Structure formats: C-alpha cells, structure tokens
Amino acid sequence: MSQIAFETWVQQELQRVEAALSRWVPADAPAGLGLAMRYGVLDGGKRLRPLLVRAACEAVAGDLAAALRAAVAVELIHAYSLVHDDMPCMDNDVLRRGKPTVHVQYGEAAAMLAGDAMQALAFEVLTPDDGDAETMPPALQARLCSLLARAAGHAGMAGGQAIDLASIGKPLAEDALRDMHRRKTGALLQASVLMGAATGGCNPTAHAALSDYGAALGLAFQVVDDILDVTQSSATLGKSAGKDLDANKPTYVTVLGLDEARHQAQALHQQALQALSRGGLADAEHLRLLADMVVDRHS
C-alpha cells in the first residue's frame, strides 16, 4: 500500500470518528457540562486508539458499525483520562492539544465533571438502546464493555497513573517502569486493538497475535512519548514539553538514557510487526502502517 493511500484511509477514518463524536457528545448537557465535554474531546488529538479499533476490525472482517462505536468509546475514555490527568491534583498542566486544558478553560469542578461524564458516555455508546438503528448483539456489547473497563480501571490506566504519581522523585527500575507504562498507556492501546478484533471472527492464533501486537505497540508509544518530551518543543507537541523531567518523574529517558530509549522503541516496533506476521490475518496492512506511524511520529 502506498503512503498516499494510507494517509487517505487515515483521513477518511478520522472524519468518521470526528463526526460520530460530535453526534454523540451532547452540547446541551446541563449547566455548560456539554460544552466542557466537547471542548475536551473534539477537534484535537491523533485519534490513534480509534484508528487501531477500525484497522483491527478490518483485519478480521468485522462489523464496521460496531467498530465505530468502539472507536468513539475508547477515545472518550482516553479524553477523560487526559482531562483528569491535567488537573492540579495530578499533573497540573495548562496546555493540551495546542490549547488551554479543560480546567484552565472551564474551572476545576467543571473539568472533573466533564471527565466523569465522558467516562460514563463511553459505556452508553457501547450499549445502544433497542430502538437504535445501529444495535449490537448483547454478547458483543458485554465483550466490548469488559475490554474497555479492564483497560481503564485499577489493572490498567488508573492503576498506572497511581504508580506514576507514587513514583515522583523516586528511583524506578526498568521492569517497574515498564509495568507502570503497560498499565497507564499500553492497556488502552492494546484494548483498542482487541475491541476491533471482537467485532469480527477471530481465531485463537489471530487473537494472540493481535494481543501481542497491541501490547508491543502500546509500550512503544510511551517510549516514544518519553523521547519526544525531551527532544521536541511545546509548540510541536501541543502540550508542555519537558514536564516529566521538571516534575522529577521516572521515564524511559531518565532510566535508560536517550540512545537506549530509542533502541527500545525500535525493538518494540519490530515486536509489533512480528506479531502481525504470525497472525494469519487477511488484511493487516493498516495495522502495520499504524505501528510505523507511532514510532516515526514527531508529536
């Protein structure tokens, strides 16, 4: 597949996801809550997680309508986590996706509620009413909700953030750092792949390959994030550069050094591609190119 064809696919998928987010995130929620929610999730971000959902769905010839709901749900969970992480009680950041963070724009209380509402909305999107034109089998709804909840909760993203906050100013061994990032960042990226796979027929070999791909890619994403935090400007990143170093947080760069962190990113990239190659998937090209995009990105 040519790079132009891939970029065309990405733009088409981004348009679908953005339109669905705009449709399902209500502007009329009470007391300005909807405005804060939409500010926090619309018109920004790489949308990598939705792209992984859609690409994995294609790889298993799955239900694209169900995958669109899954893509929106996982982006809502990601966006809510950013809203909460940016607040003064956590990372205390003022810039996200090139604009003021939600708590800066709307106040801390509104930001907290917007994050709470986005988290709840994610599961509402995955469980459409019987009268909805895009219904899903109850078993698929349950599977998607289970994958997303586990990735977002104590065993995944929330647990990783707890370790992150508890590790400020403390030395952290590489295996502990890897565990933290597999939870905080990797779990939701891996779940994105598995949610896409859940929308179609997926034999055990393909499922294991996609799971391994998602795990390697999720960790690679965080390693690259740590590298970019010390090599790129805030204007390029769309968020505050150097904030982890300033906060004395352990990262792959501080624990391993910049050169070794780059080596780790490339090794994880190869692990992800090798996992895809043994999956026997009919069409995994978009997943392969998304792995390239994660490691080669500059923001």
Rank of each mutant, 00 (worst) to 15 (best):
V125K: 11
S233V: 11
G115L: 07
R262I: 05
A36I: 02
E7W: 01
P171M: 03
R96M: 06
D212L: 01
R49G: 03
D132A: 15
A71V: 01
A197I: 04
D296Q: 15
A65K: 08
P250T: 12
V294R: 05
L95V: 15
M1L: 07
G214P: 01
L140Q: 12
Q222W: 00
A61C: 12
L42Q: 15
C57Q: 04
D132R: 15
T254Y: 12
L14W: 02
T199W: 10
W24C: 06
H269T: 05
D226E: 09
D226Q: 07
A155P: 01
G34R: 07
S234P: 12
D283A: 13
A152E: 08
T101S: 15
R288N: 01
L64C: 09
I4N: 10
T135I: 09
D246I: 14
T127H: 11
H103R: 09
S22F: 07
R178N: 14
H154I: 11
A27L: 12
R262G: 15
L273I: 00
R47C: 05
Q190Y: 11
Q264K: 14
L287P: 00
A66P: 04
D226G: 07
A261G: 01
G214F: 02
A284V: 01
A209H: 06
G186C: 07
A110M: 15
S2N: 14
L76R: 13
Q222G: 04
G169D: 13
L48F: 13
R150A: 07
V295H: 00
L289N: 00
L237N: 11
E260D: 12
P204M: 11
A220I: 04
M87R: 13
D292L: 00
A291F: 00
K184L: 05
A173H: 11
D129L: 14
D244C: 05
A152P: 03
D246A: 14
S146N: 10
V60C: 06
V223N: 09
L165Q: 14
R297C: 01
L52S: 00
A71W: 00
V230P: 05
V295A: 00
S299Q: 13
G242N: 08
R297K: 10
A111S: 08
D130E: 15
N248G: 05
D93S: 15
V41T: 14
R150G: 04
V230K: 13
S22D: 15
A151S: 10
Q105V: 07
R16A: 10
D129F: 02
A162Y: 07
M195L: 08
A191F: 14
G40I: 02
L82G: 12
M293A: 14
D244T: 12
L113Q: 08
H269L: 07
Q3N: 12
L165N: 08
G238W: 07
Q270M: 11
I227P: 09
R178D: 08
A235W: 00
G196T: 02
L276C: 02
P138C: 09
A133M: 09
V224S: 01
A158R: 15
C202I: 03
R47P: 10
L51C: 02
V72L: 11
A198N: 04
D132T: 13
D179H: 14
D244G: 03
C145Q: 14
L148C: 08
M90N: 12
H263L: 10
N248P: 02
L228S: 10
L177I: 10
V53Q: 04
L140E: 06
G153D: 00
R182Y: 04
